[in-house]
Structures are given as C-alpha cells and as structure tokens.
Amino acid sequence: MNVKLLILLVLLPFQALAQGFAGLGSEAGDFAQPERGHVLTFPEDHGAHPAFRIEWWYMTANLKGADGRDYGLQWTLFRSALAPVDGQGWETPQVYMGHAAVTTPEAHFVAERLARGGIGQAGVTASPFAAWIDEWALMGPDFDHLTMRAQGSDFGYDVALTAKGPLVLQGDRGYSFKSASGQASHYYSQPFFDLTGTLTLPEGEVAVTGQAWFDHEWSSQPLAEDQTGWDWFSLSFDTGDKLMGFVLRGESDYTSATWIAADGTATPLPNGAFQAEPVEQTGLPTTWRVTLAEQGLDVTVTALNPGAWMTTSVPYWEGPVTITGSHQGRGYLEMTGRGD
C-alpha cells in the first residue's frame, strides 16, 4: 500500500478530534452504543471493543527519582474504527495511535506512533493482556502485573507495575454519563498501581518509583454536539483516597466524578458536585481550584511543568500536578479542545 495513503487512512478518524474535539459529538450511526446496566467482565473487557468507534487505554504516573526529583510519565493507545464492522489483515477498519511522554520540571518529551490494525503492528488482547504499537508495549501475564515501555528520539522508559488495589468502575457500574442529554461511555480505572523502573533522558538513565493510574474507556459518541473538550483530573491524596473528576465544556458545562476511598470503595457523584475552576484567567490554565463539598475538599492543583503540551497529530495538554490545600498529594491533569 502507498505510504502516503496509509498515513491518510490512519489519521482520518482522528481528524475530528483535532477540530476542537467536537467531532466526538457526531452521530454514532451504526456503531455500537454503551448500554446502561451492561455488566463489565474481566479479563475480557481489558481487550478491544471493535464495534465501538473510539477507545483508549491510558496510563499516567507520578514518579520520583532517587534524588527526590519529580517526574511524570504517560503511555496511551487510541483505537478508532473507520466502520462498524471488523475484518482481517489490511481489510480491518481499526486504526491505532500511540502517545508517550515524560515530563520533568524543566522539559516535556513527546513521541507519537500511527498504525493500521489487523497486520500485527498494533492491537490489544485481553488475556494475557497486551496492548502495543510497534515496539511500544503495555503487557503482562495478568492485569495486576504489567510491564510498560516506549521511547522517542530523546527519551524512553521501561517500567514494571503492580496493582495494590481493586479495579474501579466509573459512573453507574462502568456506565459513565458525559452529558445531560445522555451521551455516555463504558469506563473503568485501575488507580492503585505501584511503579518501579528506569527513565532514559538526554542526561542519562534515572531510576524512579511512584504510583500510576490506568483508564480504559470506549464509546461511539462520547460527547454531546455542543461540547468542545474536557478538563480531566486524576488526584491521589496522601491519605490514600483518590478522586477522578472531569468537566465537559459546552453551552452548559457537565461534570462527573468518583470519590475512591483508600480501600477502593467507589462513590459516584452527580453532575455539579465536582467543581474545577481555573485560577489563571488568561492563557492555558495550569493552576486550578478543585472543590468537592461532600468530602470537605478544597485544593489547589498546580502543574509540575506548565509547558506539558502534547505536540501530536491531535494536540492537547497532559501533565503531572501537585495538590495543596485541604488535602495534599499528586495527580494528573488533561485538557483537550483548548487550542495551543
């Protein structure tokens, strides 16, 4: 196949995201739709769901080097379907995009991979779990014990992850509302990974330890027509408790959140309970005030590196944050559809 044609076919389903992410609000057509009440089952649901239009496997991690320096790490595999049918080899409608990043207080390293599914270059299997694109891989004998690696022209990482808590089903037992009009996804997390391994940076190798948060989400129309992007927070507090919350920006903002106790007990929260307001009023907001009255939470969330812009085919901001105020901790922030 012509290389330019291959690149076009890979990029085509992601172009809507590049248009302010509003394309995710387009009609689902004949693609499958999430069903409320559908019971997620594992390990099967760790794998791909090719009947749905869009899916992602997403790992972020807050790390420290032996000298106490802070780092952030990201590994993401996106799947997008050109059609609501599956196929073999070059006839498969599944295409993949991989993003990897390492963030330091002074620098943000980014790499991207693009691939067609069905030919072995990229894919996901449920058991044993493996998600890969080229030589980048997230895999293991079971989902509690994984290894993860990726590299770009000026960075890389090779790390091991061990789950220390249960999977968390977001929303209503894994059915996550995205708008008042009913758009939704299937969504679960594993926010309890311990991580050890090595970063490779221009200055050399760095041994790191820390905690990682994994998200897996699939849908065919995850946004309403008027929604242009989201601000998503994964916050881990020194108490062991955690919070996932997001604001979907539209004519009327829509919020959703889950409070995750240290033992893994998850409490979903309705639209409006989670509040996130930028502290800066100009430019890209990398300092936020986040509140959750039910838990007495009132914190300032500050980017480790305000320049953590993902300069990829689908641009967005993603980076590690620190948490101060009523609760202390670390986490990750993602902002989409805000422009560069």
Rank of each mutant, 00 (worst) to 15 (best):
N2D: 11
L5A: 15
L9T: 10
V10C: 07
L11M: 13
L12G: 00
L12Y: 13
F14K: 01
L17C: 12
Q19K: 11
A22Y: 08
L24K: 04
S26C: 11
A28L: 01
A28S: 14
A28R: 13
G29M: 01
P34W: 14
G37A: 08
T41L: 12
P43D: 07
D45Y: 12
A48R: 03
A51H: 09
T60C: 02
L63D: 11
K64L: 15
G65P: 06
R69S: 15
D70M: 07
L73H: 01
Q74N: 08
S80F: 10
A81S: 11
P84H: 04
V85K: 08
D86K: 12
G89D: 15
E91K: 14
T92C: 03
A107C: 08
H108T: 02
H108R: 00
G118L: 09
G120F: 06
Q121R: 05
A122P: 04
G123W: 09
G123E: 07
V124G: 08
A126K: 02
A131P: 04
I133P: 01
E135P: 01
M139W: 12
G140V: 04
F143R: 02
G156F: 01
A160V: 10
K164E: 14
P166L: 05
L167V: 09
G171C: 11
D172V: 13
Y175M: 02
S176H: 05
S176Q: 10
F177G: 13
K178L: 06
S179H: 03
F193Y: 15
F193Q: 09
T196P: 01
T200D: 11
L201K: 11
L201D: 01
L201V: 04
P202M: 04
E203M: 12
E203C: 01
G204C: 11
V206D: 07
V206A: 09
T209V: 13
T209G: 11
T209Y: 04
A212Y: 04
E217R: 10
L223C: 10
L223N: 01
E225D: 14
Q227C: 06
G229W: 01
G229E: 00
W230A: 02
F233E: 06
S234L: 04
S236E: 15
F237R: 10
D238R: 07
D238T: 15
G240D: 15
G240C: 07
V247Y: 04
L248H: 03
G250R: 12
S252P: 04
Y254E: 02
I260D: 10
D263I: 05
T265L: 00
L269Y: 12
P270W: 05
P270I: 05
N271L: 03
N271R: 11
G272R: 00
G283F: 06
L284H: 02
P285D: 01
T286G: 10
T287F: 09
L292R: 12
L297W: 09
V299E: 05
L304Q: 09
P306D: 11
P306K: 03
M310I: 11
M310Q: 11
T311W: 14
T312G: 07
T312A: 05
P315C: 09
Y316C: 04
Y316I: 02
E318R: 08
H327E: 14
G331Y: 12
E334I: 09
M335G: 03
G337R: 01
D340S: 08
D340Y: 11
